[in-house]
Simulated assay, not measured.
Amino acid sequence: MDIFESFCRTCGNECLESLSIYKESAQALDKMVPISDMLAACLPASLPPLNPEDDYPKQICRICVKKLSMAFEFSHQWLGAHSEFNVALKFEQRRRRSQASKSQSQSQTQGQAPTHPAEPKNEQLPTEPADAVTPKIQSEREIAPSTVEAKSSTDSRPGFKCGICNECFYTEKACKFHFKFSHKDL
């Protein structure tokens, strides 16, 4: 139907300069993305999917395209951060399970009962200046330069090491996440 010929599908206002939802693309995430793809990604699942054959308006105004691009970028940013947090949380859970199993096996091999959490520990923590909050990350290049050069593409050893607890990581980003969440009090 042509009764909506000059109306924006997203805001419902009449617009003189509009773009076709199904034929045009807009700049988002440093590339051109079809407007229909951005709309499909940002619309709630409870709405019916976009259909070029329906009777609704087939155009979108430039103001709504800018808003849509921002919403699309925000959605991708949120999903990326959520994914990174999931990786960090899974790593932390594995690390804690590993530490618990190591301490349990050590106590069994040494014939000691596990220490009670209320008992004070006589550990001395290293003292650092209060302004030393930057992560201590060492790449394998700093640790052992000869091993990095000999590393093949099939070698899957971690390449980054936390300077505080010596945990190893495959990426610098994972190491920074570890530092941020595991050593947040430093």
Rank of each mutant, 00 (worst) to 15 (best):
Q110E: 08
V33L: 08
Y170W: 14
V33Y: 02
Y56I: 10
F179G: 04
K23F: 09
F160T: 00
A45W: 14
C11Y: 09
T147Y: 06
P135Q: 04
F181R: 06
P120D: 02
D55I: 09
S146L: 11
D155K: 00
E24K: 09
G163R: 01
S83H: 12
D185K: 02
K151I: 01
Q106H: 15
R157S: 07
K23H: 10
P129M: 12
A81G: 11
I21T: 02
P126F: 10
D55Q: 11
P117M: 12
W78V: 09
I60M: 07
A28V: 00
Q59A: 02
L43S: 12
L79W: 05
M38A: 09
N13V: 15
L19G: 07
A100V: 15
A88L: 04
E17C: 13
K66Y: 07
L29E: 07
K23P: 11
D185N: 01
L89T: 15
K121W: 13
K184Y: 04
L29H: 01
K173D: 01
E167G: 00
D30H: 06
A132L: 08
N51S: 07
L50R: 00
F4S: 08
R97I: 15
Q124T: 14
V33N: 09
F4N: 05
S139I: 00
P135R: 00
C8I: 05
H76L: 13
P145D: 06
S182K: 01
L43C: 08
L186G: 02
S105F: 11
P120K: 03
E123L: 15
S75M: 15
Y170H: 10
G163S: 05
P117G: 00
L47T: 15
S46P: 12
S156C: 01
M1C: 06
K121H: 11
K180D: 14
C175G: 04
C64N: 02
R157F: 02
E5S: 15
L89H: 11
T134N: 15
G12N: 09
I21K: 07
P114G: 09
P126L: 01
C64H: 04
S6W: 14
N51E: 06
G12Q: 07
S156M: 06
R95V: 09
N51R: 04
R62I: 07
Q124I: 03
S152K: 03
T154A: 08
P34W: 08
L50Q: 03
R157H: 12
A144H: 03
K67N: 13
Q124C: 11
Q99R: 01
L39C: 09
Q124P: 10
A81M: 12
A88S: 07
C15Q: 02
C165T: 02
D185E: 02
Q108G: 13
I63Y: 14
E140D: 10
L39F: 07
Q93M: 07
K121S: 14
E140Y: 14
P117K: 05
I35L: 00
F181I: 04
L47N: 15
K176Y: 04
T10S: 11
L79K: 08
K31I: 09
K67G: 11
P126W: 01
R9E: 09
K66W: 13
